[in-house]
Design a protein around this nucleic acid. Structure first.
Lengths: 205, 205, 205, 205
DNA sequence: GATGAATGAGCCTTCATTCAT
DNA sequence: TATGAATGAAGGCTCATTCAT
């Protein structure tokens, strides 16, 4: 009966994912997950403190991962001289952005969990967390480039929040709609170009 | 014991809204709603056939209303000559759009329900429904103006879906974040301009 | 709104019968009966004190009627001289018995109610009540004819109860199985002959 | 808290029987059964999938058992040569019949459940199921012995149904009235003799 | 490490009934 | 006479979780 803990864990995880994906967090059943994993519901609690903790375990690494990626992406960008940043934005170029997408596709099911099945968990607002990071860096960028959009009132932090929110919602549409990686790349590239045009107009480059 | 039905209804509705807003549809409790409204849970069922029906009653008029508004907005726009449509888009002008926002603000709590508390109901995908209408009309517009974006492959229906989805997510940010009406107008106006720039670039006006 | 009481009552009764027949007493719904009768559930209570009372109203006249019929049937028979009674039994003849069947068929739905839908009411044991009357008279008959079946121990009141119970169960089979009146007459006649043979053997005529 | 399953089960079963016996299936309350068994209502569901399943568990073995007994009883009888069958019937002798009664008395409470408390379950018609088996075999018997009762129209399958129904109703009277085993044997023996007389008359042996 | 049994809280809903109108 | 509103009680059942083994 006693088995290798991590082995059992590996049996649980896909079953948990499947159940959360199928029914969403609230309607997901611990019993069902256990049954799918050929074990008792009680056994689940050796591995996870609670249903919430189980969801979190599934999701947290990717949440952290994508945030770090976003942070590093924006950090390296931040450290460039202002005029190079400016140019890069105008050209909607960011070497690291494909990594971002790649990361999402490497954990596609997890991001689906985050985007469509997290209701009732603290991760229901996952996208907004990303947005906040994003906005923060966009503010830094505007400051670094000495752009007058904020000063002139053409732009505000709230607007930036809205724009970021719109952007990431667009990004995660590819997840929600199960696009192939190739299609996703394509669409996201175009989405970025689209937004670059918007930013160029707003920042008056 | 027996009271005026509509009076009771008016007591129930805010309590129901509050509970759904607090906990989301799934976790909301009929008992709690009843208790808040100083009545028995059974009494609720004189006014609504079920929990689902109650949510629907709260939400359906606004769903219909906003869809109709969107439809009429886009219909009247559709009927303009192609070149005027083109110009209007470039100028990000649409007389009726403020009505759209106004409608949202006239039913702010309902749209919050729809945006953040509808999980587990048929209204969970409310935004996507709007998006679908929007995309349909955007396709018509492209056809009507003879634009080559689709033909050239610069744009696809999927991309349009993503863009629309991004746009409406931006719009409903104002709902989620409880912006004042004035701020909302302002931000949405700018959001529209931002998107207009994107579209102009994509459609190469 | 105020109408003729008896008129309303006549509208209620068939609806009540139908509902009890469909679902049995327990599962029958006052609301449904009211709805079928185009009135409110509360209105029902002007006519009947309770669900039980309603069932009773439907059923009591026929219960009384059939009991009286049975009593009178057996009474007149009782009053005949012993040897004539004896002969009549041997010949399985009883002028009044067809009246019994006729009465049942004149209130067929009610007897169906009594036989198959009375669970949960005091009428669940309707047949046994008849049986008790029957046994009582059979005892009288044995005494009147000076038969030695009881004295000899060949027969006992309990056995007579069992036999009567068997007989009436057979009788009410025709009700349960919706036989036509003609078939019923036929079958019951034969059932009586069958039982007469049994009695003849038991009483050693 | 956790106990031996079968131990608990043995505590539940009499409580369930009692409750069903007291109130009938419909009015019986799972909560009450649980309370009587000193456990939570939820705990019941570890042992039975539903109220229906609980009733069935109580009743099914005996239903199967008695049917098998009836079948085997009639089968062995069926295989005898026609003339021996005929004689056996005339003498109302069947070695196995006492086993039938014994079986009933070994599961007396269960047969009470079946006879008087099964309304609302698929077992409400338990007696009629037995009757159908019985009739089937009686038809075989008539055919095997070349009797002319059916051919002459003196008897019909419907009549046989009624007679069987009457017979078994008589049999189960002993259950309903809690007769002692000894009394039951006695009465049923006499009931059989009574019916044998009837059959002899009907079949004109 | 894993289990099966058990729990307590809660779920939505339905019911017969009452009562002010 | 009849109603619509409201109720209290109860219904069966499911859930995440605990705990003795």
């Amino acid at each position: 009966m006693p088995k290798d803990k991590s082995e059992t864990l590996e049996k649980i995880i896909p079953c948990a994912k499947k159940e959360f994906l199928d029914k969403g967090f609230e309607r997901a059943s611990m019993r069902k997950i256990a049954a799918d994993a050929n074990m008792s519901a009680a056994g689940l609690y050796r591995h996870f403190e609670s249903k919430e903790a189980m969801f979190e375990a599934l999701v947290l690494p990717a949440v952290k991962g994508i945030k770090e990626l976003l942070l590093s992406m924006r950090d390296t960008f931040s450290e460039l001289p202002g005029d190079i940043q400016k140019k890069a934005v105008s050209d909607y170029s960011n070497d690291k952005f494909p990594l971002f997408i790649e990361y999402i596709y490497d954990h596609l099911d997890v991001f689906k969990l985050l985007t469509t099945c997290a209701d009732g968990t603290p991760y229901a607002n996952f996208i907004h967390d990303l947005v906040e990071v994003d906005v923060e860096y966009n503010l830094k960028f505007i400051e670094a480039t000495g752009n007058d959009a904020l000063a002139s009132g053409r732009c505000t932090p709230e607007l930036m929040h809205i724009l970021s929110s719109a952007f990431y919602s667009g990004i995660f549409e590819v997840v929600i709609h199960d696009m192939t990686r190739k299609d996703a790349d394509d669409h996201i590239e175009r989405l970025r170009r689209f937004f670059a045009a918007g930013w160029n107009a707003l920042l008056r480059f």
